[in-house]
Simulated assay, not measured.
Amino acid sequence: MTTAITGLGVCSPGGVGVPALWEALATGHAHRPAVAEFDVEGATLRSAGRVPGHDTDGAWRTLDLAETAVREAVEGLDEELVRETALVLGTTDPGVVLPGRFAGDLAAACAQRTGLGGEAITVANASASGAAAIGVARDLVAAGEARVAVVGGADAITDLAFLGLNSLRTLGPNGCRPFSAQRRGIGLSEGAAVLRIERLDDDTACTPLAVLTGCGLTNATGHLAAPGADGIELAVRMALDDAGIEPNEVDFVNTHGPGTRRGDNAEADALRSVFGDALPGIPVNSVKGVLWHLQGGAGAVEAVACVLSLVHGAITPTWGSEPIDPAFADLDLVGGDAPRHVPGLRTALTISCGLGGMNTALVLRRP
């Protein structure tokens, strides 16, 4: 079922609000200060992407970030409809217990703060959590269990996540360098991003910014800490089939593009399998070069970025990719220092991958 995307909300290292996100992606500027609240001596990387202007610490920070994004997404919506709206939030650490609440209560706590009275569901699919949550919310709307849903992901920087990824040798000394010959791992960030989705019919509350036409989710990998090309390929094919389109109808691909050796290679191999000889003619990008990795919010902020690309008719650069690894010479990786305007830009594919083989692909189109 096709669902309309009628609202967006974001807070990221690029700033608070949707306009700030587009500006960050277009210019490559983001807030990435040194980590100060826990000891990072000896870590490969000692800075992290932060949402400027948010000073809350501890367990409340993820909730505060989610609340900021949700409030932006429902701004202007009729109060009665807000009280019926469902909330689905992805996060990498559902076991964090908010004071006075149970583990896994992030969505419920955020719904109470923002007045959303429909179902509240927390999704945990590692770094694919935000994107997987979008699939869950789409199914709620399609099944008639929610007329409107706000969906996305949120995570704050914690010592567990930061130092845990450092121990796995996943952090890179220069943060995310997608598809670069100098890539050595990821940079960790915090933030939240959500989309407001609803049935695409005569009762749709607002003019759609875009439509969500396809979703594919898989759990398949041969390595806990690295995605496998087969699992990514399957997720993409499922999403295209769900959308009812052929690969040659995709106008650009927003990759997971974390800047890890295995991750970028597996994703490129999956794209080669899906698109074949047509791949060099399809623009490809990654937003992680500027935002770094928003953990559970990554897939959601990248879906928002795709919507903005469709609205603006332009694809933002893959910051940090130079010099490009010769292994990706067949990719039309969007570079430069400004968005690439693409006449007739209509269909976007976005891919998210998580530890343990969690893969999600979404197809977004102009209405």
Rank of each mutant, 00 (worst) to 15 (best):
L160N: 09
I315G: 02
A329R: 13
C11H: 07
S167N: 12
L195M: 04
G15D: 05
G289E: 11
L140S: 02
G344Q: 03
D325W: 10
G17S: 00
E302K: 09
E67P: 06
A20P: 00
L310D: 00
A86I: 08
D277A: 15
M1A: 15
G76T: 10
V211F: 10
A305N: 08
A124L: 02
F252W: 14
G222R: 13
S127G: 13
A268P: 04
R261W: 11
S273I: 06
L271N: 04
T255F: 07
D203M: 12
D57W: 13
G259Y: 07
L87A: 13
L163A: 02
R261Q: 13
V40Y: 05
G135K: 00
G28R: 10
F328Y: 15
S352C: 10
V290Y: 11
R50S: 04
A124R: 03
D269F: 12
V74Y: 03
P33F: 00
M1W: 12
L279Q: 04
D230P: 12
H29K: 14
I324S: 13
V136H: 11
I245G: 07
T3L: 14
L87F: 13
G296S: 02
G53M: 02
G336N: 08
D105A: 14
C176I: 09
G152H: 03
G76H: 10
R261A: 12
R365A: 14
A69S: 02
A220G: 13
S189F: 05
V97N: 03
M1L: 14
A300D: 08
G356M: 05
V141Q: 02
R366W: 11
R196V: 05
V253H: 06
L240N: 06
T3V: 15
V51A: 09
A69E: 01
G117V: 04
L98A: 00
G185I: 01
M238I: 14
A43E: 04
A120I: 03
C11I: 07
P99Y: 00
V334H: 06
W22I: 06
G222W: 10
P323G: 07
T27E: 11
L217T: 10
I351N: 09
P326I: 12
